[in-house]
Design a binder for these strands. Structure first.
Lengths: 236, 236
DNA sequence: AATTATCTAAACCATAAGATTGAGAAAAAC
DNA sequence: GTTTTTCTCAATCTTATGGTTTAGATAATT
């Protein structure tokens, strides 16, 4: 939970000097904020983050040398729990998607009223995500489209459903790259039985070797049966 | 764009009779809405959607026979551009994530003020996504966590980088489930050469069979080299 | 009671896959 | 100009994999 007795420590990163100055002044007007740093260079900014551990990092996403997305990743690698709010000139759905995927907690357009920026900082400092409704829509358009691509393959009539319980267990082990001998040991059956199961799996999945069976399973959303999972648990 | 001269056609699906009645009355108060149907059964609801093509479907996500997530999928299969708004008693991040992933356009908690429901309908009818800030946060917590899992594997020191150009081409074909003879034909080299490459790949990836090489490639973000891709293009 | 599905297993065979050693040619790096 | 890497290939060998048939024991279904 946020501690309201202390000032919020904010760090600014924007390669545009004018923007940087403008934002700094804007935020300085708020008595509850403390700008611990402001820099035009992303790498310098990383150093400042390491040093000052700000609560919030306001960062432009379009920068020449090191771009915003890379910088978010670098921050992640530091393992510091800093909340990144992205400043961007574009409401590009791909950009928003990638920034949020990498762990950004907020995304604000530079064209928005300055009060929105304060809103964003407050919201994020409060542990929530800040995304204006237009950007939320942009994000989900992209997200749902990506999801559709994923499930498209899994959609069609899935041959995996024709597998019996035991065949599912065997396929599960196959997808772990285990050979017949080990599978036989794990399931406590003979190796020839494993072969029988595997051949039946091949027939049902319409493939003729292990690799293609595994590929089919992975690209068609194969999920090991619960019994098989619990056995894995027990083995671990 | 929304046509404000026509009433919004809304369909309700909720297995709880009281909820259903309550929501119906609430929406009927709005003169700009027209409830084209209200049912307690998801499958019946699907039929009504097919018949009336409503602009908005308000649907409970917790239903006994056919659950809300399945119903969203069924609607998707119909290929009808209906906007689904989910009604739920829980702000469960996994549930929100899956509903939105499947294409829901809004998510409203039953505990919220009824005005929020109207907000949601308006927002979604306007082509936007409606997610209350608490739910947005829930969603992103889940989303970013899932994304982290994805990239985690691809992060570590990746043995794939040690592969030579030719080895990459061979591995690419391996991940397509192609056998040695066919690989030899595709690359116009002898089968023994393929074996040599494959053995080198095994050494570098520290595995000892095709299946595990393929699994390693897939779980470590293997992307076929550009040259290999262009050859695929040419072959298609 | 009879049928069907599932799991188990053996025997046999064919071959694809994997391991190993050695080696020449060309390209890249030093 | 020498060394190293990469790509190529052969020969040999072992073994894991895959194909097929047959069949007994249960369990589920009708």
């Amino acid at each position: 939970m946020r501690d309201f007795t202390k000032k919020l420590r904010v760090l600014l990163i924007d390669d545009n000097a004018n923007h940087l100055r403008g934002i700094k002044e804007l935020i300085s007007l708020e008595t509850s904020y403390n700008v611990v740093g402001a820099t035009r260079n992303a790498n310098l900014g990383l150093g400042l983050i390491k040093k000052y551990r700000p609560d919030i990092v306001l960062m432009d996403i379009n920068m020449p040398e090191k771009d915003g997305l890379q910088t978010i990743q670098s921050i992640n690698k530091l393992g510091i729990s800093t909340n990144v709010v992205i400043l961007s000139g574009y409401d590009d759905s791909d950009l928003i998607y990638r920034a949020m995927k990498l762990g950004a907690r907020g995304y604000v357009l530079k064209t928005m009223a300055s009060s929105k920026l304060i809103d964003a900082i407050e919201t994020v400092a409060d542990g929530k995500i800040y995304l204006p409704s237009v950007l939320t829509t942009r994000f989900f358009e992209y997200f749902q489209n990506a999801a559709k691509e994923e499930t498209k393959v899994a959609a069609g009539e899935n041959l995996l459903t024709t597998l019996t319980g035991r065949e599912n267990e065997v396929l599960d082990l196959l997808t772990q790259g285990i050979n017949y001998k080990s599978i036989a040991q794990k399931l406590i059956i003979s190796e020839t039985t494993v072969k029988t199961h595997v051949n039946n799996i091949f027939q049902k999945l319409q493939v003729n070797d292990r690799t293609n069976a595994v590929l089919y399973a992975l690209t068609h959303g194969f999920k090991p049966s619960l019994t098989a999972q619990s056995e894995q648990m027990a083995a671990a």
